[in-house]
């Protein structure tokens, strides 16, 4: 088993790598699909803005590669948002791996923008392998201004300004809106679940 971290060019790759080091999980950082080789788990991290990140991913050939790949893919924060069809941030097309659109969190007198800090997981799908052993009310670290609405892909929710998807899945494509690599022992467990959960049987057309 080996993990490839996709270099989005504007992401916080070091932190994800350090988190995997702490779990003693081997990984490589890859910039093009050719470098994936025998990597059987992919991580798409993200810190930054959707537009520049998508431009870099497309230029490196990831859009076509990921559409055909059946490897388990974990998108983190912006990485999760890029897995959708479209993001309101910069009004850009995403990778199209999960059907849906990413919207902007509203700000109000009560809820500032962006959503930043530790918040709780709710409505946890008991069958979701990424969330094995997780309990409702556990806290993870969020930093984001855009969100995926609640839909059939939702595997956990969090409330801030609105109730949004904090964990999503469509086939072997799974995503966290929060940063597991920065979420203490709870986040470490989620990364471990990703590394060890078996790949789902999915048909890639």
């Amino acid at each position: 088993m080996s993990i490839a971290i996709i270099d989005t060019g504007c992401a916080n790759i070091a932190s994800v790598g350090f988190a995997l080091d702490r779990l003693r999980a081997g990984f490589r950082v890859v910039t093009t699909p050719d470098e994936v080789g025998d990597g059987d788990r992919l991580i798409l991290p993200g810190v930054g803005a959707a537009g520049p990140a998508m431009a870099r991913l497309s230029a490196a050939g990831w859009t076509a590669f990921l559409a055909q790949s059946s490897r388990p893919l974990l998108g983190i924060c912006l990485g999760m948002q890029l897995m959708f069809d479209h993001s309101k941030e910069g009004d850009v097309a995403g990778l199209g791996l999960i059907p849906g659109r990413v919207e902007r969190l509203k700000s109000s007198a009560k809820d500032v923008w962006p959503h930043m800090g530790w918040n709780t997981l709710h409505d946890i799908d008991a069958d979701e392998p990424l969330l094995a052993d997780m309990k409702s009310g556990q806290s993870v670290y969020f930093v984001h201004g855009y969100f995926a609405p609640i839909a059939s892909y939702t595997r956990a929710t969090t409330g801030f300004a609105t109730k949004f998807s904090s964990v999503v899945r469509h086939g072997n494509n799974v995503g966290c809106q929060f940063h597991p690599e920065k979420s203490g022992p709870v986040g470490a467990k989620i990364l471990q679940n990703f590394i060890h959960a078996p790949s789902l049987e999915v048909n890639v057309s």
């Binding site: 810190v47 930054g48 803005a49 520049p52 941030e89 984001h144 201004g145």
Partner: peptide
């Protein structure tokens, strides 16, 4: 903010 996003 344009390069890395407002959030950082």
């Amino acid at each position: 903010a344009a390069e890395f996003g407002c959030q950082c």
